Amino acid sequence: MESRPGLLSASAVRRLATRLDLRPTKQRGQNFVTDANTVRRIVALAGVQPDDVVLEIGPGLGSLTLGLLEAAERVVAVEIDPLLAGALPDTVAERLPARSAALSVVEADALRVAELPYEPTRVVANLPYNVSVPVLLHLLATFESWQHGLVMVQAEVADRLAAGPGSKTYGIPSVKMAWYAATARVGTVPPSVFWPVPNVDSGLVSITRRPPPETTATREQVFAVIDAAFAQRRKMLRSALAGLAGSSAAASAALEAAGVDPQARGEVLDVTAYARIAEQLTVAAG
């Protein structure tokens, strides 16, 4: 490691990986940020405040962690890889010793983590490409204390998370995210700032939590309708929801009662419409 403290440079990232005998795996979506300016940009766009407790998923070698520790009160980092989880406190102690006590490392699978040592107020993460959407939905459902976030994901996923009804990229991730939060695509990150270099751009998505639609249906019931609607994307809703409703006629009746055209397709509806449909299907079943 170089003696100068602060954020990791590209050479420092490689030296640290060599010291740990680390071989990044595609299975865990390990692509580490090697550019300090990109880290500063992410922290700035995330709006991290001095009193924030930031939850970071997949801190890896600590590039973003160090930037967050410079700006936040505390960082809780969830890392599934035992090697990386064990090395992170040492990296912070070497590079940013005055802030090492502000780091908490949780060795866990982000898809299953249910408890944290501190309540997060903000999520900032470079999410693994292969599990980014389920991880994000899990964090929104499990830790209700965080109100704002910024995540870096594959560009295509960023477009889906932020898409609105009627767009080509609008789908299950778009609608389920809208249940929890308002989202916006706020930037692009080139492959060149990562090691190993991925073959796609990354996108930055801002997240601002908001109340879910007012409905008597549960989130699970609404999400079941969303899943069914997009399972057969090109089908009219009366056909796509026939399995849930019991028949095409029952689906049509529920859709009409919800104020939705039975011949519409799922890609044109917002999350509020899905909540109304779930409510009507629940009433009909009851």
Rank of each mutant, 00 (worst) to 15 (best):
S9V: 07
A12S: 09
R14Q: 07
L16A: 09
L16S: 08
R19K: 14
L20Q: 06
K26W: 08
V39I: 01
V39F: 00
R40M: 01
R41T: 02
L45S: 02
P50T: 06
P50L: 05
D51Q: 11
D52W: 01
L55P: 02
G62C: 03
A72L: 06
E73S: 09
V76T: 05
E79D: 05
L83N: 09
P89T: 14
A93I: 10
A102F: 01
E107D: 10
D109S: 10
D109K: 08
N126C: 10
Y129C: 11
H138S: 04
T142R: 11
E144R: 13
E144M: 08
S145G: 14
V151Y: 02
V157D: 11
V157G: 11
D159F: 03
L161N: 04
A162C: 14
G171E: 08
I172K: 06
V175Y: 03
K176W: 06
Y180M: 09
A181P: 07
P191R: 15
I207D: 00
T215W: 03
T218V: 09
V222M: 01
D227P: 05
R234M: 15
R238E: 05
L241G: 02
L244K: 01
G246N: 03
A249F: 08
L255V: 11
L255E: 08
E256W: 14
A258P: 03
V268L: 14
Q280H: 12
T282H: 13
G286R: 15
